[in-house]
Amino acid sequence: MDFVRAWWRTFSVQGSWNYRTLVAPGVTYALLPLLRRIHEGDPDRLESSVLRHLDSFNTHPYLASLAVGALARLEHEGVSEDEISRFRVALRGPLGTLGDRTVWAEWRPFCLLIGITLFGLGLGALWSAGAFLVMYNVGHFWIRVWGFRCGWRQGRDVGKVLRAFPFERFTDRLWPVTMFLLGAATVLLGREVLATSGGAGSWLLLLIAGLVAIPAFRWPNQFGRLAVGLLLAIPVGWILLAIAGQGW
């Protein structure tokens, strides 16, 4: 039950995220059921263990379960305080980077675009949103369960497992599909937008807009601001048209 409790608590590791110790309080919160079991009957060791883990630490939230499993294993094995501190420092970079690249940069956009494409192809809105949630969370929950088990089983050798795990192969295979879906979703969403305006516009408009997307890839910040600027300019344009006597 303590393992289940600790694993469940990893879902809230970012609850007390702060700019000084980052995700450390949340990771310590998740570790507590296991630390209490490991240091049962020795409140001084429990206190020093908690204090140790409250030191600054960072990880992707989904890979926090791996960190919790591994750190709990080290505590259980009675590893020295210095070694645990060095292990924490060694772990924080890879767990943050791997999670960001695999989940935020690849898995999430891929699943979102599946949902948007399904909607554009005619699947109902609620079904499309549901499809996104189910698909995304299959991967999400898998990472959390795998991470916790891997962390506990491997302990200080978890780094070897992380290096051997095919994260990069996964992202290398996923991004072309994500880009394909991006193109498809753009056209489908553009069609929905044109339908909202009663068909004012044309496929030519979509093709021209597509040409805008190409330099946007090269200058993302500038074109990201352009996108918002265009939306803000629309009401201004309407007002100017009204003044010019064209209606809104």
Binding site: L206, A209, L230
Partner: peptide
Amino acid sequence: AVVTALAASIGSG
């Protein structure tokens, strides 16, 4: 404007 903004977002995103 909306479709162009969409395209610009796609490219930058």
